[in-house]
Simulated scan of single mutants.
Amino acid sequence: MKKHRILSIALATLALAASPAFAGDGKHHKGKHHKGHGDNHHYVVDGRHDNGLHKGWYKQAWRRGDRIPVAYLEPVYYVDDYRVYHLSAPPVGYRWVRPMDDRYLLVELATGLVTQALGY
């Protein structure tokens, strides 16, 4: 009986002493890439890499020459009553698009090219 008690105490002590070794140092994460101490920390999650830009953490600031995603070329984003918003009439093949409140883009429908960005 005394042997079992001593053996169980020894195993419990060993298990508690070994648990910090299994905890890890926090530098290696499953599914992520960690470069080194001196490098910028750019992580890869789900196979996508944003080069540290953290897109999606802020509202996109569109500029002339950018291409907008195809999702913004849906009629739900079109500004049909452009005169109400004091916008000029779009040329043929172009549309005013409103991706978010108080921001307007004049976009070429065929390519998604932004030719004018207002409110950015």
Rank of each mutant, 00 (worst) to 15 (best):
P99M: 02
L106Q: 04
P90S: 05
P75T: 11
K35P: 08
A23I: 11
H33P: 02
D81V: 02
L105H: 10
G47D: 04
R5V: 15
W57M: 12
Y120L: 10
Y94T: 06
W96P: 01
G47S: 08
V44H: 09
Y78G: 06
G26V: 03
H86T: 07
K32H: 14
K30R: 07
F22W: 14
Y120F: 07
D25N: 15
Y120D: 06
A61Y: 07
T13W: 04
V45L: 04
A89S: 11
A23Y: 13
H42R: 09
A23F: 14
R64E: 14
K55R: 10
R64M: 12
Q60I: 13
G24I: 02
G119Y: 06
D66C: 00
V44C: 08
H34R: 13
K55M: 10
L113V: 01
L113Q: 04
E108M: 00
S8L: 15
R98M: 05
L109D: 08
Q60E: 08
R48E: 12
G36M: 08
V97I: 15
A61W: 03
I9H: 00
Y94D: 03
H37D: 13
A89H: 13
G56K: 10
H34T: 14
Y85G: 00
I68P: 08
S19I: 12
H42F: 15
A12V: 15
G26W: 00
P90T: 11
A10Q: 11
D102P: 01
P20W: 05
H41P: 09
L105T: 00
G93P: 02
A17W: 14
S88D: 13
D50W: 10
V107L: 04
A10R: 06
M100W: 09
P69Y: 04
G38P: 06
I6T: 09
I9T: 04
P99C: 12
G31R: 02
D25T: 13
